[in-house]
Amino acid sequence: MPRILLIEDNEMNRDMLSRRLQRKGFEVEMAVDGRIGVEMARAGRYDLILMDMSLPEVDGWEATRQLRAAPETATVPIIALTAHAMAGDRDKALEAGCNDYDTKPIELDRLLGKMAALLPAAAQ
């Protein structure tokens, strides 16, 4: 069962996405801001991280850079979730070290497709 870390400050988004992913067979753990998210990512072993970009404490871009800098999380797949359908945000996310991005509101099928492309075959 793939282990997913969902870093999202909005309670409803977090609840909704986590429940839908669990229904699809993922093991989901959650962090409410960037700082906690980085701590959890380095402490636990996750197959993929879903990272909201506008986070309190440490924002998504900074958190991604920190994760990429740390050896234990340097290669873990990260998908950025951005609120604005802006190509600029996507570029910034990819620059910071994200593997892919998706825009909110979440189209679950689309997101699942992107996740499938990044998850190691063993985890699926």
Binding site: M12, M16, R19, R20, K104, P105
Partner: peptide, 12 residues
């Protein structure tokens, strides 16, 4: 933001 929740929860 609230609309995303409405759509998301109705799908759920």
């Amino acid at each position: 933001t609230p609309l995303n929740a409405i759509i998301g929860y109705s799908e759920l």
